[in-house]
Design a protein around this nucleic acid. Structure first.
Length: 648
DNA sequence: GCCTCTGGATTTTTT
DNA sequence: ATCCAGAGGC
């Protein structure tokens, strides 16, 4: 985004602050969070840290994590935070037994967060809002800093984000939001469409501009996508139009299995590349679930076609990476018990469950963070209450972290990381494990990323590095410089565009996902998701499905997605792998051209003619063409080299 | 304390 | 199919 703006605005782009709500808030809290009791070196807890903390909350309350699913509780709590409900608010309005439990857990969870000097993703937003509310003079500073505020993808903001935008723009009243209700695909993350509806109420003087001209896609693609999304009932009818050409038909492909599906994609990409006007970068393959990337990746790899997978098993969620980050986080924020517990015995250093339980209880009685407890153990003249063996192991760990902390003020992040690896013996530990080599490569990659922070002073470097790691977004890794195809989920693809798009898994159960079958609102969201995917395509759109596919160990046969039948037939062509042998190595879309009755066509031998009949078959189209000099001829669209004459 | 085995859950999407 | 937590053996 920064690059795009640089390109558009030139030098002035440097004056802009640009970021996700979360990143912006993280910076604000880093500077001014002390006003709401936040330590400037607070940690940001991600998904798995949240799970740990939630489990600990349950444990402390004597609740069984099997009865009370930590994920479900986190979900309920997150929903509350997205609407600015504090734990106390929540408790006050809880109506059911479940809500009562959530309320109790929420309170305990908040307490633990505070003890750890940590915040979760939702807190970044909510605490910033609280900060602004309780400290108008701080808010005023940010208000005067930003003359204008623009929120993009406004349909995907939650109530807290909207409230933040309101606060920040209150002084200048220059708030500009851009959004498309048809592309609202994050309601499960508490995105609230009310934000769009309420906007005009909250800003009665707002000017509304409807952007109905599309500059990206061909007419055919737009019409096909409209066919899908216009079925939604909870929707205001709008139809995009474009001055672009009609373009190629949408290609529907029916494959045998997911590997066939993947093979088709790879071959077609190669065909397009061979033809010359398409580069690997122009091609994207989109799917509903990350698990689907596997078969595709395999096909791309085997075929030797360059590709990149966005998201999937996320880099920063790999175990070896999280472990090393936990060392850095603990060094950075000694209150961070979650990070300490993660690595206290990784690699194994003789601190087992028993020792740890004793130690935690002991520190708990003293009311001090675990790290402070460790330091106390090593103080001179302190008689260690743990056994000789366990006590010594704890002591060694304590001095390990202390040495690293001392270094953290002196050396840059990359060197600090080297020290962590060396002092903990992490390299040996990783190399012993299965996939050791691969995991070590990941660590080297992390080392490379850390090296990018060398020009900052040590403290600053560590701060910025940890923040980037926590707030890293998958689409950040989208690499436009190396020329390769992109494999990406439909959700992540929002906001992007590609000349060639393959949507795979167009089946009932995948898109729409079977989890959405029972709820009409969720079903409408699936439809929008399909719409988002289709409208990413500029020139060529392929919709693929597999007759059989392996899901969670078992083989299933999914019927075609209901969305496929909402695309007007005259916009589509069918292709399948069965025809593959007969097909020359040329892209499907150049051999299949869309014809309608009445089209003027030209044949290399018969000359000009008019299409009088058109019968689509499963993977082709039988045409009947009337030629003035040769009479009526039956032709196969894929074989007869017919050209359509321009309509005037 | 640490390693291995087994049974059970678990996959929708993400800042 | 794969990952994780808990149990049991060394």
């Amino acid at each position: 985004m920064v690059e795009r703006l640089d390109h558009l605005l030139g030098r002035e782009a440097g004056e802009l602050s640009l970021g996700t709500f979360h990143a912006l808030c993280a910076g604000i809290l880093r500077r001014d969070g002390a006003a709401v009791g936040l330590h400037p070196r607070y940690s940001i807890y991600d998904d798995s840290d949240q799970i740990s903390l939630m489990k600990r909350s349950l444990q402390e309350l004597g609740l069984d994590p099997k009865t009370y699913n930590p994920r479900a509780l986190l979900g309920a709590m997150s929903a509350a935070k997205s609407q600015l409900l504090t734990a106390e608010d929540y408790v006050e309005r809880s109506r059911s037994y479940f809500e009562e439990i959530v309320g109790r857990v929420y309170q305990r969870y908040e307490l633990l967060l505070a003890q750890n000097q940590a915040v979760d993703f939702d807190d970044l937003l909510m605490k910033t809002h609280q900060l602004f509310q309780s400290h108008p003079q701080i808010l005023a500073r940010y208000q005067s800093r930003y003359d204008h505020i623009l929120v993009d993808e406004f349909q995907d903001t939650n109530l807290t984000q909207y409230a933040l935008a309101r606060q920040l723009s209150a002084r200048h009243s220059n708030l500009f939001v851009v959004g498309d209700p048809d592309q609202s695909i994050y309601s499960w993350r508490q995105a609230d469409i009310r934000n769009i509806l309420d906007f005009e109420r909250d800003y009665p003087e707002a000017q509304v501009v409807h952007l109905e001209q599309n500059y990206r896609s061909t007419q055919t693609i737009l019409q096909a996508a409209h066919g899908v999304v216009s079925v939604n009932e909870d929707r205001k009818e709008t139809q995009l139009w474009t001055e672009n050409e009609k373009g190629l038909p949408v290609i529907m492909v029916e494959a045998d299995s997911e590997s066939d599906e993947a093979r088709f994609v790879v071959r077609e990409v190669d065909n397009l590349l061979a033809q010359g006007d398409v580069r690997p970068n122009d091609c994207a393959v989109m799917y509903r679930t990350n698990a689907q990337s596997r078969a595709l990746e395999e096909a791309f790899m085997r075929h030797g076609t360059p590709y990149q997978v966005i998201g999937g098993v996320r880099f920063y969620e790999r175990r070896e990476i999280k472990d090393l980050i936990a060392y850095l986080r603990l060094v950075y924020n000694p209150y961070d018990d979650i990070s300490l517990l993660r690595i206290v015995n990784v690699p194994p250093r003789g601190i087992g469950q028993r020792t740890l339980d004793d130690f935690r209880q002991w520190a708990g009685r003293l009311g001090i963070p675990l790290y402070a407890g460790l330091q106390r153990l090593t103080e001179d003249g302190f008689s260690n209450p743990f056994g000789a063996h366990a006590g010594a192991a704890l002591g060694r760990f304590a001095s390990l972290i202390r040495d690293l902390s001392a270094q953290s003020a002196q050396v840059d992040v990359a060197r600090l990381l080297d020290s962590v690896i060396k002092a903990s013996g992490y390299q040996e530990y990783v190399m012993e494990s299965p996939d050791g080599e691969e995991r070590w490569q990941n660590i080297l990659e992390l080392r490379g990323i850390a090296a990018g922070y060398q020009n900052l002073d040590p403290q600053q470097g560590l701060t910025v590095f940890l923040e980037c790691v926590s707030l890293f977004s998958d689409t950040d890794e989208l690499d436009e410089k190396t020329d390769r195809a992109t494999l990406i989920t439909l959700h992540q693809a929002k906001g992007l565009e590609f000349p060639v798009v393959f949507m795979v898994g167009m089946e009932e159960g995948l898109l729409p996902h079977f989890k959405c079958f029972d709820h009409s609102e969720q079903m409408e969201e699936e439809r929008r998701l399909c719409y988002v995917g289709m409208t990413r395509a500029k020139k060529r759109l392929y919709l693929l499905r597999a007759m059989r596919r392996t899901l969670m160990g078992g083989v299933t046969a999914n019927p075609p997605s209901r969305f496929l039948s909402d695309i007007p037939g005259k916009l589509t062509s069918h292709a399948s792998l069965y025809r593959e042998e007969a097909m020359l190595a040329s892209p499907v879309a150049t051999t299949l051209v869309e014809f309608e009755v009445g089209d003027q066509v030209e044949h290399p031998k018969f000359g000009r003619g008019v299409v009088v009949g058109c019968r689509p078959t499963r993977d082709d189209c039988e045409l009947e063409v009337s030629f003035p000099d040769f009479g009526r001829k039956k032709l196969l669209s894929s074989l007869a080299r017919l050209g359509r004459l321009r309509e005037d």
